Structure formats: structure tokens, C-alpha cells
Simulated assay, not measured.
Amino acid sequence: MNRSLLLTAALLSGLGAAQTSPRPAATLTVQHDEGSAQVRRDPRRVIVLDEEALGWIYALGVSDRLVGLGSAVLTPADLTPDGHVKPERIRGTFLARGDLSHATFVGNWTQPNLETILALKPDLIVRATWQGNGNYPQLSRIAPTLGYSEQDSGYWRKGLRDLARIFGRQQQAENVIRQVADTNRTNGRALQAAGVFRKYPKAVVVSPFKGGGTYLYTKTRLIEDVRALGFRDGMKSDASTLGVGGVVSDEALLALPKDTLVIVFPPGGQYNGAQDFLKSAVGQRLKDQTVLYTQEPNSPWAGPLVSIRDSSGLTKVILEKVK
């Protein structure tokens, strides 16, 4: 056989092997905190039921796939007549970090409008959840639904990596996870250099709710980034709300030593009780060791984009406190 025939045979053999090599399955199985779901790869019509899941979609750069959005804080007053979020409600908030131009509002994150969701014909629904949260069976009958609980270890990293696998964005997910760690490491060095840990080796994160109690966060909500910056826990709590913290008494707060930094981290929107807390007898007693850190409007409690912003924003506030 001459050289030309040999080359032709080799090319045909390679082509045949390529044609018979297995293709990735059209769907994949995802184990999440509410069960197991068969999800099509690279879905085109996605609904997120809260800002937490929205942040993961934004971090992966696939917000152009969003056809529906639920929320913990948006109301009908924030919507256009056709059910989209008003541009002025998006500008200057966390919502502006991605593309919501195709997303219809589907209601409150705990009680979404199932008829609206069905009409949008999603091929994936993603939500934050907790024990006792409803509608999972109904949502799953409409489209594969993934739910992730704040109280579980690695909460947002698990959700982000699952979605990255679904969208084929694994490297992007690992890059943003690494960026979170690098940001905390850099900011921790700045705090160390400024002598912050000599004055405040410990810290607590408290969240005053308007008309309600003050919560001590022990998991997920800002506290994990506070630890990554280099602070030790200033208080333990056995009480639990949604697995991330519990109500803390005035007496417990007043008993905090002077070397514990009190980080007031209020909820957003109408729930924000920070000013009432700071003006209270407890707030006044603790003012010399207190900083107020407020997230950008419409921000999730946690997530990669949130951690990057919160780490740097909180570091700036603390450095201003001790200078």
C-alpha cells in the first residue's frame, strides 16, 4: 500500500472513531437539598425564586437565560404593567449585576405564583429552601427544581458548582470561588497590618429586625467571611433560626467584653431595624465597639459575589473604625 493510501486509511479510521465516541448525556442527575432531579444540560429557560439563586446565575454569566424571578423583597409596586422589574428598581442595586430584561416576576419566594411559572415554560427552577418550605412537588411537576438550604455546609458553593456543571461553566465557578478566598486573604492582611486583631480578636454578627428580635448569626450570613478575615467567634448560640443563627438577648450582648467587635448587619428593605438598635440602650452601651455594615439593596444574604463585596466593604468600615 502506497503512502497516499495509508494516509487515507488513517484519516478514515480516525473519523470513524470520532463518530462512534460517546456524546455527553442530554441530561444529568443533580442531588440537592430537597431530593434528586434530572436536569437537561445548558437549559435555556430558567426561573430563580429568590436573590440567593439569582446571585449564582449572575456569577456564572448566564442571566440571559432568566425568564422568571421570585424575590423576598420585591412587591407589585416595583413592577411594570407587563410584570417586569422597573428599571429604576434595578439601578444601583444587586439586581443590576446581570440581565433581567427577559425575566417576569413570579411572586414571593415562599409563595410563588404557580400559574405564572407554568406559563413561562421553564426547563429549570432554582431556589433557596429550608425544612418545611412548601411547593416543591408542584414546582417539580412544572420543571426540574433544585433547592439549597443555608444551614448546610458549603451552602452557596454547592449550589454554584451544581449549576456550573449544568451550564458547562465549571472553570468559571472555580475561578470565582478562588476569588472569594483571595479577597478575604488580602483583606485579612490589611486588618492585621492595621492592628485590628490586637484590639478586636473576636467578633459577632448581629442582625436587628424592624419590630422584631436581634439575631446572632453563626453560619452562612456574613459570619463565615468574618472568620475568613481572621476574627474568632465572640459568642456561641444554641438557638437556631433556619439553621443560620438565633435570637440573642440584650443581656447577652451587654455581657460582651470590650475586645469583641460587634458587627451590625441588618436585613434589607422594610425589615431593617439597624437604626432602632443603634439608638437603643444596648446599642448605645456598645457603640464604642460597634460597626454598621449594610449590604447593597436587593442583595442576597450570601454567595460568591456577595462575599467579594462584603469582605472589602466590611474591611473598609472596620479600618475606618480603628484608625
Rank of each mutant, 00 (worst) to 15 (best):
Q179R: 15
F167P: 02
Y148D: 05
K158A: 12
V206H: 07
V205R: 08
K202V: 10
G154R: 06
D152M: 14
N175F: 07
S153G: 04
T220F: 04
F197M: 09
A181H: 13
E150P: 04
S153I: 14
G147E: 01
R178W: 02
K158F: 04
K158Y: 03
T214G: 14
V206K: 05
Q171K: 12
Y148L: 12
D152F: 12
A190Y: 04
S153F: 06
Q171M: 07
D152K: 14
F167E: 01
V204I: 15
T214W: 05
G159Y: 06
V204L: 07
Q171S: 14
G147I: 14
T183Q: 08
F167T: 00
N175K: 14
Y217R: 14
V196F: 03
A173R: 01
G168R: 06
V205G: 09
Y200I: 06
Q170Y: 00
N184Y: 05
L160H: 00
T186C: 04
R185S: 12
A164S: 03
S149F: 06
R198I: 02
R198G: 07
L216V: 11
Q192I: 00
A190G: 04
G147P: 03
K210R: 13
K202D: 07
T183M: 10
P201G: 10
I177C: 02
D182G: 03
V204Q: 06
Q179S: 11
S207H: 04
T183L: 09
Q170K: 08
T218S: 13
F167C: 02
G211R: 04
G195C: 12
V206F: 01
G154F: 02
P208F: 10
K158R: 15
G159E: 04
I166P: 04
A164M: 02
G212Y: 04
R185M: 07
N187H: 13
Q172T: 11
L163C: 04
I166L: 10
A173Y: 00
A173K: 03
Q171C: 05
G159T: 05
R198P: 00
Q151K: 11
I177N: 00
E174I: 14
T218I: 15
R157A: 14
Q151A: 15
A181V: 15
N175T: 09
N184W: 02
R165Y: 01
G154M: 08
